[in-house]
Amino acid sequence: MKTRADRIASRLAETFAPTLLQVADESARHAGHAGAGEGGETHFAVTMVAAAFAGQGRVDRSRAVHAALAAEFATGLHALSLTLRTPAEHPTTIA
């Protein structure tokens, strides 16, 4: 069975054609608090570099990712930490 991380990665890859994509399942770090579901797979962090973000501000970039992952939010995705860059920004802004 595909994990939520797999689904997030494939959905983002097809939507944004990123040059760099990292999806981390951080659910274990939030286990036990409200919103952390019993089966885990609730808290994720995504780092993505894509030319598609050029000309977009932070809020618009995040909204585009949220929209692409609407099905995951509807089925228990609870927290999504996003680091979204264009290729031009990437060398200097990712620590």
Partner: peptide, 12 residues
Amino acid sequence: EFVGGCDIVTEM
């Protein structure tokens, strides 16, 4: 005006 969530506020 909406500024953002935790990630955006932290970056800003």
